[in-house]
C-alpha cells in the first residue's frame, strides 16, 4: 500500500459488561495520503471517535489492519496526537502544565519545554491563563488547551475530534485559520471530525462521509477548492455545491426516531 494512513476492513464491536454489544465499525476502510487534510462527517454515534481511537492506538480492532506510514498500529506513539472530544485535561494541572504533558512524557527538559509551550499557548489565545486550572476555564478555552497540548508534542498526524465544537463562532473562525496555517507550515496530516459540513468543506482536501452505525465509509468527496482558502470562498458557488453534495450523502443516514440509533443521537 502506498497510502500514508490506511485502514483495511476494520471491525470493532464493544461488549460492555451486562449490556448489549455495540458494533461501532464494520468493514471500515480508509486511505489517506501524507500531508492531507481530511475531514470525517457522519451521524452521531456512528463510530467516528472510535475510529480515531483505533488510529491513535488506544483500542485494538477485532479484525482488520490499521497502519500509519507503512507500520501497523499496535499502540500509541508520539507520531500521532489527538485533540479529545471531551478535552481530557488533567484537572490538577494548570493550563501550562497540561500543554507540557506530551513533551514531558518525551523527556524534554523543563526549560525548552516551557518555551515551546508558551508559543502554543499564545497561538490558541490563552496567554495570561497559564496558571489557571481547567475548572476555571470555559468550555471553549478548555478545548483550546487540548489543541495546544496536541500541537506542542509536534506529531506527524494530528487527530481532532470535534475540536471546535465548544467554541463561539468568532473564535472558531480564527482557530480554523490558525489550524490551516499550522497544517500548511508544519506539513502535518490532519484527520478532523466535525458535525459542521461547512467547516469540513472549508478546511479539507477530502471529506469522508460515514454511514450510520455500524460505521463504514460511504463516500469520499474530494474538495477541489484552491488553496490558500479565504473567508470569501465560503460564498462561492462551488463551495455551496460541495456542501450540498455532502449534505445529500449525509441526510439519508440521519433518520430521527424509529431506528436502532435513536437512543444515541
Amino acid at each position: 500500500m502506498s497510502s500514508y494512513i490506511s485502514a483495511e476492513n476494520i471491525n470493532l464491536t464493544f461488549r460492555p459488561k451486562n449490556r448489549e454489544a455495540v458494533t461501532a465499525l464494520s468493514e471500515f476502510n480508509i486511505d489517506i495520503e501524507q500531508g492531507q487534510f481530511v475531514s470525517i462527517v457522519g451521524p452521531s454515534g456512528c463510530g467516528k471517535s472510535t475510529f480515531l481511537n483505533v488510529l491513535l492506538g488506544l483500542i485494538p480492532p477485532n479484525t482488520g489492519v490499521m497502519s500509519v506510514n507503512g507500520r501497523t498500529v499496535t499502540g500509541p506513539g508520539t507520531d500521532r496526537a489527538m485533540v479529545f472530544q471531551e478535552f481530557g485535561l488533567l484537572p490538577w494541572r494548570t493550563v501550562a502544565h497540561n500543554v507540557e504533558l506530551g513533551l514531558e512524557l518525551q523527556g524534554v527538559a523543563k526549560g525548552p519545554r516551557r518555551e515551546t509551550c508558551q508559543g502554543f499557548i499564545k497561538m490558541v489565545g490563552l496567554t495570561g491563563f497559564e496558571n489557571h486550572y481547567p475548572h476555571e476555564l470555559s468550555g471553549g478555552m478548555k478545548q483550546r488547551v487540548g489543541l495546544a497540548r496536541a500541537l506542542a508534542s509536534d506529531p506527524d498526524v494530528l487527530l481532532m475530534d470535534e475540536p471546535f465544537a465548544a467554541l463561539d463562532a468568532q473564535t472558531r473562525d480564527i482557530m480554523q485559520a490558525e489550524l490551516l496555517r499550522i497544517w500548511h507550515e508544519a506539513k502535518k496530516t490532519v484527520l478532523f471530525v466535525t458535525h459542521q459540513i461547512e467547516e469540513a468543506v472549508y478546511l479539507s482536501d477530502h471529506v469522508i462521509v460515514m454511514t450510520k452505525r455500524p460505521g463504514r465509509t460511504k463516500k469520499l468527496v474530494p474538495i477541489d477548492l484552491p488553496r490558500p482558502r479565504d473567508y470569501e470562498m465560503r460564498v462561492s458557488p462551488r463551495f455551496n455545491e460541495l456542501k450540498l453534495e455532502i449534505w445529500n450523502e449525509l441526510k439519508d443516514e440521519l433518520s430521527v426516531g424509529g431506528d436502532e440509533d435513536s437512543g444515541h443521537a
Binding site: 470493532l12 464491536t13 464493544f14 461488549r15 460492555p16 459488561k17 454489544a21 488506544l58 483500542i59 485494538p60
Partner: peptide, 10 residues
C-alpha cells in the same frame, strides 16, 4: 488495559 476498556472476547 484496553481489554477492560473495550470488553472481553465474545
Amino acid at each position: 488495559e484496553p481489554s477492560t476498556y473495550i470488553a472481553p472476547p465474545p
